[in-house]
C-alpha cells in the first residue's frame, strides 16, 4: 500500500480537483482510499453520490476553568504563550487558540484549571461508490489541525488494509505549516501541484523546502498550462526543485470546473478532454513509479 500526498503551498491551484480525478483513474485498476487532510476546508465530501458511512469524533486537550474555585488572580493570563486566555473580571479560555499545554493549570494557586479532552473535529467516513473517503473536519476556527490530520491518515491506512487497496491518495492542505507537515510525514510520495505564475511558483518553492526536510520523493504537476510557458516540458525557471521530476502538464480546461459543478471527477465526466488525458497519463506514471 502506497501513500501519495498532494500538496501545493498556494491554495486555489486546483489541488483537490486533481486529487479526485487522479483517485478516480487510479481506482480503475487499483483499490484506492482517498483521505481529505485539508481539515480546515474539506471538500471531498461535496462530490456526487457520496454516502456517509460513519462519523468519529476527534478530541483535543483544552484548559477548562472551574469558576467556583477561581479566585481571579489572573496568573494564568500571564503564562499563556498562545493568547488563549482573555482577561477581564475572570479568565476566559479562548478554545480556538488553546493548545492544551497546561501552563495555566500549573500556575493556578487554587487548582481551578484542568486540562480536559474536548471535541474539536471529526472524521467522516464516506463512500463514493468507487472508493472510500476518510475526511477530517476541524471545528470552525480551531487549532490542532496537525493532530486531526494524523488521525485521518491512521484511519485511511486501516480502511486501505481492510480493502487491500493499493493506494492512499491524500488531499493535503495549502500552506507549509502544521497540517501540511502532518499530511506528508512518512508518506511514500509527494505530488506538488502548481500553476505557471510567479506567486504559485514562489509558494511551491516553500513547500519544496519543507518536503526536502523530510526527504520524501516528490514530483511536480504544472496545472493550468496552455499559457506561454506550456509545452516546454521544462521545470519553471528559478525553481530550486531539488531534482524533482515534472510529472505532468495539465492544460487549462473549462471542462474541469464544469465537472466540479456536476460533482463528478473530471477524468470520469469528460474522459476525452485534454486535461483528463493528462491526468490519466499521470495515474499511469504513478503506478509505474510506486507499484
Amino acid at each position: 500500500m502506497k501513500e501519495i500526498v498532494v500538496l501545493s503551498g498556494k491554495g486555489g491551484v486546483g489541488r483537490s480537483t486533481l486529487t479526485v480525478s487522479l483517485g478516480a483513474v487510479l481506482a480503475e485498476r487499483n483499490g484506492v482510499v482517498l483521505a481529505d487532510a485539508n481539515v480546515a476546508a474539506p471538500h471531498l465530501h461535496l462530490f456526487t453520490g457520496v454516502v456517509q458511512e460513519e462519523v468519529v469524533e476527534s478530541l483535543a486537550a483544552k484548559a477548562v476553568v472551574d469558576y467556583d474555585l477561581c479566585d481571579h488572580c489572573m496568573k494564568c493570563l500571564e503564562v499563556c504563550r498562545f493568547s488563549a486566555i482573555i482577561g477581564g473580571e475572570e479568565p476566559i479560555i479562548f478554545n480556538c487558540f488553546c493548545t492544551g499545554c497546561g501552563a495555566c493549570s500549573l500556575v493556578c494557586p487554587v487548582d481551578a484549571i484542568t486540562v480536559q479532552s474536548v471535541v474539536n473535529g471529526r472524521l467522516n467516513i464516506l463512500d463514493t461508490g468507487w472508493c472510500r473517503v476518510v475526511a477530517g473536519d476541524l471545528d470552525i476556527g480551531e487549532s490542532g489541525s496537525g493532530r486531526l490530520v494524523g488521525a485521518v491518515r491512521k484511519r485511511a491506512r486501516l480502511e486501505a488494509e481492510k480493502r487491500g487497496a493499493g493506494f492512499i491518495l491524500i488531499d493535503g492542505p495549502p500552506g507549509t505549516g502544521s497540517p501540511a507537515i502532518a499530511s506528508m510525514k512518512g508518506a511514500d510520495y509527494v505530488i506538488l501541484v502548481t500553476e505557471p505564475t510567479p506567486p504559485a511558483l514562489h509558494d511551491l518553492q516553500r513547500i519544496v523546502d519543507v518536503v526536502a526536510r523530510y526527504a520524501i520523493p516528490a514530483g511536480i504537476v504544472l496545472n493550468r498550462c496552455g499559457m506561454p510557458e506550456a509545452g516546454t516540458r521544462q521545470m519553471p525557471a528559478g525553481l530550486r526543485a531539488r531534482n524533482h521530476d515534472l510529472l505532468a502538464e495539465i492544460p487549462l480546461d473549462p471542462l474541469l470546473p464544469a465537472a466540479l459543478a456536476e460533482g463528478r471527477p473530471a477524468a470520469e465526466a469528460f474522459r476525452a478532454a485534454p486535461a483528463s488525458r493528462a491526468i490519466r497519463r499521470l495515474a499511469r506514471t504513478m503506478e509505474n513509479r510506486l507499484l
Binding site: 491554495g11 486555489g12 485539508n38 480546515a40 476546508a41 493568547s83 480556538c96 487558540f97 476541524l138 470552525i140 476556527g141 480551531e142 487549532s143 489541525s145 492542505p173 495549502p174 500552506g175 505549516g177 497540517p179
Partner: peptide, 11 residues
C-alpha cells in the same frame, strides 16, 4: 488572511 478555517484566520 490565511486560507482554511483554522485559528490562524481568527488571529
Amino acid at each position: 488572511t490565511p486560507s482554511g478555517l483554522r485559528h490562524t484566520v481568527i488571529e
